[in-house]
Structure formats: structure tokens, C-alpha cells
Simulated scan of single mutants.
Amino acid sequence: MGSGGPVLFFDSGLGGLTVLREARYLLPYEPLLYVADDAAFPIGRWPEADLKARLLTLFDKLIATHEPKAVVIACNTAFTLAGDALRRAHPQVPFVGTVPAIKPAAERTASGLISVLATPGTVRRAYTRSLIESFASQCHVRLVGSDLLAEMAEYHLRGDPVADEALLAEISDCFLESEGRRTDIVVLACTHYPFLTNRFRKIAPWPVDWLDPAEAIARQLVRVLGADAASAPADTPDRAIFTSNPKDPALVRLLAGFGLVLERD
């Protein structure tokens, strides 16, 4: 088990807030630290070797500085690429990862047609293919990679306009009809995407179950913390660190809505 420090949530941008929000419901007294590597956003476009090296170096600094009790990698791209290496590098700290929710999708589907909506990096990853082989071999699983959706989710969350037509162009490949059957589950394999779920529901050609892993990740964090979960309020506010060191009043307000204070160098 890690130290008595905060639980550290990591993502490339704002997407991990979907996971932090669920964790806050289940762990009301736990000190939380949100770290966004927004200087590298969107990380799905990075060469894998460069991204892995960046993540390992960044976490060496984060863990030495903040001594987290546990780490939640609230990002499919980062965890499927570097999760094993991070666990080996920091065996004293428990890591909770994020992987595409293919197993629960396979258990829930009635039609057998599942789509996984993800970043191109997650779609390419052998980890994703092995999940399909292990848990969804009896299903038809379509992998749909989007270069733009994570950025669109950030725009949407910040209040900037995102056109329905632009969203539909990114998700339309998720909808498959075959021999009288239709896709009935879309796995949201990027933590940014749940911010757009209500928009997706309005523009989808037919209703599907949009599978958001945030609650399951939060429940796993509760299991990992066990008796070490905080049982009394912390004295300090929950904090957020962004690697680009932004000075953006709108971001400060947005983070305050999640109970976070933006720290600056």
C-alpha cells in the first residue's frame, strides 16, 4: 500500500474528471490530487516509445513529490501503453487502471454487435485485442478510432460550440446493421467521451447502451484502498495540477465545479 498521501488521478486532460467525480461519491473524505498532462494533449497522437518514456519520467517526479496513497490512471491510452511498466517501477504504490469495458459489454449485449469507441492509440494496442479475444470472442466487436473526439469533449466541457454534424462524423462507424441485428452497445474507451454521452444519444441513428467505465474504476479504487480509505475529512482542499501551467480563469471555475483548486508553479 502507498503512503498516507492523496489519491492521484492522472489523465491527459479533463477526461479523468469523469472518474474523479464517481470516486468522490464513494470516497467522500479521501484527499484527491488530479494531474493532467495537458502539455502533451492529445496523447493518442504521440509515437508509443516517446509517450511511454514521457509517462515513466513524469510519474517518477509525481510519486516522489506527492507520495500518493494510490494512483488511478484515468486514461485508456496511457494505461494500456505504460500500466505494467509503471507498476514495475513503483511497486510500493497501488495502481488502478482504465481499460476498454469489453468484458461487461460482451455480458450485456443482446445482438452480439458491440462497438468500441476509442482513440487511435487504444484501437491499435494489443491489450485491446487481447481483451476482445478473452471476453468477447462470441461477439462481433468493431473498433472505431477517433482522432478528434477527446478534443471535442474538452471544447464541449469548456462551453465552446461543437456541431452535431462533427460529432456524428466521429461516431457513425459505431453503428452496424447485419442480418437483422444492430449494434446495441458502444463502449466509451476514453474517459473524455462520457462528457458527450447526452449529445451522442440525441444524434445516434438508434438507441444503444453507452458504456461508461467511470463507476467501475471508482469501485475498484475503493477495493484497493480497503481499510486505508480516509474516514474523516482532510484539512487541505483537493488539488489539480496541469503540466502546461495554464493561467485560465475559465479552467479555474470548471475545476471548482469538481471540488478542485488549480495549483500553479
Rank of each mutant, 00 (worst) to 15 (best):
F200M: 13
V96S: 02
L188F: 07
A110N: 14
G180C: 09
F258R: 08
A74M: 00
E165P: 04
A232L: 15
E67N: 07
K61L: 11
G259H: 06
T80Y: 02
T122K: 08
A256S: 15
A216N: 10
F9D: 01
A166L: 10
R88G: 03
I63R: 02
E151K: 05
L211D: 14
A53I: 01
W46C: 09
P6R: 01
L113M: 14
L33P: 02
L251R: 10
F135E: 03
L254A: 07
P194I: 04
F59V: 02
L211H: 14
P100I: 00
Q220V: 03
P91H: 03
D248T: 11
D209C: 12
P213C: 06
L254Y: 11
I203W: 06
G145S: 07
V252Q: 13
T119S: 11
A150Y: 03
R199A: 13
L148G: 05
G97D: 01
L143R: 05
Y34F: 11
C190T: 09
V99A: 09
V35K: 06
T65M: 05
A110H: 15
T80W: 06
G145T: 11
V141N: 00
A89N: 03
P28E: 08
M152G: 07
V116Y: 10
P100M: 02
V141M: 05
R87W: 00
E151F: 12
A230P: 14
P104A: 05
E48V: 14
F79T: 09
G112E: 10
L131K: 01
T77I: 06
D265W: 09
M152S: 08
C190V: 09
R264I: 15
D212P: 05
L14G: 01
L251C: 11
R264N: 15
G112K: 13
I185N: 06
E215W: 07
P213R: 06
L131S: 02
V252M: 10
L33Y: 04
E22R: 08
D11W: 00
W206N: 12
V123F: 10
E48Y: 01
P91M: 00
P233F: 10
L167V: 13
L8M: 01
D265R: 14
S12H: 01
D248W: 04
D164I: 09
A64C: 07
D184G: 11
N76S: 04
A23D: 02
I203T: 09
A36S: 08
P213L: 08
Y25E: 13
P91Q: 02
D228L: 15
E107A: 14
Y25H: 12
A74K: 00
D147T: 11
T119G: 11
M1K: 07
F10L: 01
S115K: 11
T98E: 02
R108K: 14
F59L: 04
G5T: 00
F175L: 08
L86Y: 00
I132F: 04
T77K: 05
Q138V: 08
V99K: 03
R199K: 12
D248A: 08
R124L: 12
S244G: 07
A150C: 07
V35G: 03
R223I: 13
L149C: 02
G180N: 09
R201V: 12
P207H: 15
S172H: 15
